Amino acid sequence: MPCSLKVSPAPSQSPPAFVSVRKDEPITPIPAPPAINPLKVKLGERLFSDRRLSHDNSRSCASCHDIATNGASPRQHDVGPDGAAITLNTLTVFNAALSFRFGWEGKLRNIEADTRASLESPRTMASSSVEIAEKLNSDPDMRESFFAAYGHRPERGDVVDALANFQRTLVTPGGKFDRWLAGDAAALSEDELGGYQLFKSLGCASCHQGVNVGGNLFQRHGIFHPLASPEPKILRVPSLRNVATTPPYFHDGSAPTLDDAVRKMAFAQLNATLTEKQVKALVAFLNSLTGTYRGATVGGSP
Rank of each mutant, 00 (worst) to 15 (best):
T273N: 07
A187H: 05
N212W: 00
P26Y: 06
A117S: 14
A268I: 02
T290I: 08
R75V: 04
G80W: 04
A255M: 15
A255G: 04
A72K: 02
A117N: 13
V211T: 13
A186M: 13
E276S: 12
F48R: 02
R109S: 15
R109T: 11
I30W: 01
K280Q: 13
T87M: 13
S58V: 06
I111F: 10
A261K: 05
G299C: 10
P26A: 06
S49W: 02
P122C: 03
D161G: 00
Y249S: 09
A162N: 04
E45Y: 07
A32F: 00
K6M: 10
A10H: 11
V262H: 04
G83C: 10
T245M: 11
V171I: 01
A162S: 10
A126S: 14
N212L: 11
A32K: 07
C204E: 04
L88S: 09
P238I: 05
R123P: 00
F147M: 15
P29T: 05
F199H: 11
N89F: 05
F218G: 02
G151P: 03
T124W: 09
V130N: 09
C207R: 08
Y293F: 15
N95G: 05
W104C: 09
N212E: 08
R168Y: 07
K277V: 13
A117V: 03
L170V: 09
D260M: 01
N37T: 12
A255V: 00
G210H: 10
D50H: 09
V237C: 09
Q13P: 03
P226N: 14
H55P: 00
V19I: 12
L108N: 11
A281L: 13
F224A: 13
Q13F: 14
A182C: 02
K135Q: 08
R263T: 07
L286C: 02
V171N: 00
D50Y: 10
C3D: 12
S201Q: 08
T124S: 13
G210Y: 05
L98G: 06
A185S: 15
I234P: 01
V21I: 10
V19L: 11
L98Q: 00
M125A: 15
A97I: 03
D260C: 02
M1D: 02
N70F: 04
P238V: 03
H208I: 00
T172D: 03
H225S: 11
L274M: 09
T246Q: 15
C204Y: 12
A84T: 11
K107N: 08
Q13T: 06
S60F: 07
A284R: 06
S301E: 14
P34R: 07
E190A: 13
V19T: 15
T290M: 11
S12M: 07
Q278V: 07
E155H: 11
D252P: 08
M1W: 00
G203C: 06
N37H: 06
N57M: 01
G299W: 02
V160G: 03
S99W: 00
I86H: 08
Q197Y: 08
A182E: 04
C204N: 06
G300E: 08
